Amino acid sequence: MMDRTEMIDRAMGALIGGALGDALGMPTQLLSPARIAELYGHVEGFVAPVADHPVSKGLLAGTITDDTEQALLLGRILIVSGDRFDHTRWVNALLDWERDVKARGSYDLLGPSTKRAIDAINNGVPPEEAGSGGDTNGAAMRIAPVGIMMPLEPLDALVAKVAETCRATHNTSIAIASAAAVAAAVSNGVAGGDWHAALDHAVMAARRGAALGHWVTGGDIAARIDWARGLVRGRTVADGIRLITDLVGTGVASQESIPAAFAVLEIAGGDPWQAAIISANLGGDTDTIGAIAAGMAGACTGFSRLPQQHIARLKGLNVERVHALATDLVAARTAKAGSGKDAAA
Results as ranks from 00 to 15, higher is better:
Ser257Met: 03
Thr68Ile: 07
Asp52His: 12
Asp271Met: 12
Ala261Ser: 10
Tyr40Asp: 07
Ala343Gly: 14
Gly295Met: 02
His53Ala: 08
Trp227Cys: 02
Asn123Gly: 12
Ala293Met: 04
Leu110Glu: 02
Ala181Trp: 04
Asp226Thr: 13
Ala345Glu: 13
Met150Ala: 04
Gln255His: 08
His310Lys: 13
Val47Gln: 08
Thr68Tyr: 07
Ala222Val: 02
Lys102Gln: 14
Asp119Cys: 13
Asn92Asp: 12
Ala210Trp: 04
Leu314Asn: 03
Ala211Gly: 15
Val237Asn: 05
Lys57Asn: 14
Arg116Phe: 10
Ala19Gly: 00
Val186Glu: 00
Val248Thr: 00
Gly298Trp: 00
Leu24Asp: 04
Asp239Tyr: 02
Ser178Gly: 08
Ala263Met: 05
Ile221Trp: 01
Ala183Met: 07
Thr288Phe: 04
Ile311Thr: 09
Thr288Ile: 06
Lys115Asp: 14
Leu158Trp: 03
Ala299Ile: 04
Leu74Asp: 12
Ala34His: 09
Ala238Lys: 15
Arg10Thr: 10
Leu73Phe: 07
Gly13Lys: 04
Arg224Ala: 06
Gly134His: 01
Ile176Asn: 00
Leu95Arg: 15
Met26Phe: 06
Glu129Gly: 02
Ser173Ala: 05
Ala291Gly: 03
Arg89Thr: 11
Gly124Val: 07
Arg224Asp: 01
Glu266His: 03
Ala337Asp: 03
Leu31Trp: 09
Ala14Lys: 07
Ile64Glu: 11
Glu69Thr: 14
His42Glu: 12
Ala185Cys: 04
Asp156Gly: 12
His196Glu: 15
Ala23Glu: 03
Leu247Trp: 13
Gly240Ala: 07
Ala71Thr: 02
Pro27His: 02
Gly82Val: 01
Arg142Glu: 10
Ala19Leu: 01
Ala198Cys: 04
Val50Asp: 14
Ala180Gln: 05
Met7Asp: 08
Gly138Ile: 00
Leu212His: 05
Trp90Asn: 08
Val203Tyr: 07
Gly213Ala: 03
Arg167Glu: 13
Ser257Thr: 03
Ala51Tyr: 07
Pro307Gln: 12
Asn122Gly: 14
Asp287Gln: 05
Lys341Asp: 14
Ala344Lys: 15
Val146Ser: 02
Pro54Gln: 07
Trp90Ser: 10
Ala184Lys: 05
Met149Arg: 11
Leu59Thr: 10
Trp97Arg: 01
Asn122Glu: 15
Met26Glu: 06
Arg76Ser: 12
Gly240Tyr: 03
Ala160Ile: 09
Ala183Lys: 08
Lys102Asp: 14
Leu329Val: 02
Ala335Ser: 09
Glu98Pro: 09
